[in-house]
Design a binder for these strands. Structure first.
Length: 116
DNA sequence: ATTCTGACAGCAA
DNA sequence: TTTGCTGCCAGAA
């Protein structure tokens, strides 16, 4: 192999993808929670940036299960149509009203406490 | 190398 | 309560 770098080694991006993949079906997490789990609690924006490039990853990543700390679908505009993210969530039994997850507190999955 | 930007979060008015 | 500004970090131009 003549030094072909498809994806960087375990970068922050891959870490984000890995955690995001661990979010259970029907549950959601937040950018800040993932960032905090990775140790860099103040890089929540980087989590979003990483998910923005998640299409580079061959593995499916349930990025629709990641919302902001208020349970709002701030990244819906990055799923092609503005309704795709909401549909994906509702498909998993999550109720979304006005771009916000209903009973977000109950659906919230925190890697810090769940994965320990 | 320097500057800009962003799928956030926290805090001040 | 809602709105707006600031800090944050890493990648892209």
């Amino acid at each position: 192999m003549a030094g072909k770098k498809i994806s960087r080694n375990n970068d922050f991006f891959d870490m984000v993808y890995e955690v995001t993949r661990l979010i259970p079906y029907g549950r959601v997490s937040t950018y800040g929670a993932i960032a905090r789990y990775l140790g860099t609690g103040r890089s929540a924006r980087m989590v979003g940036w990483a998910l923005n490039a998640c299409h580079n990853n061959p593995v499916f990543i349930p990025a629709h299960r990641v919302v902001n700390r208020n349970g709002i679908l701030t990244g819906k505009h990055h799923f092609g149509n503005s309704t795709t993210m909401r549909q994906l969530l509702e498909n998993e039994g999550i109720v979304v009203e006005d771009d916000q997850i209903v009973n977000f507190r109950e659906k919230f999955w925190d890697p810090l406490s769940e994965l320990q």
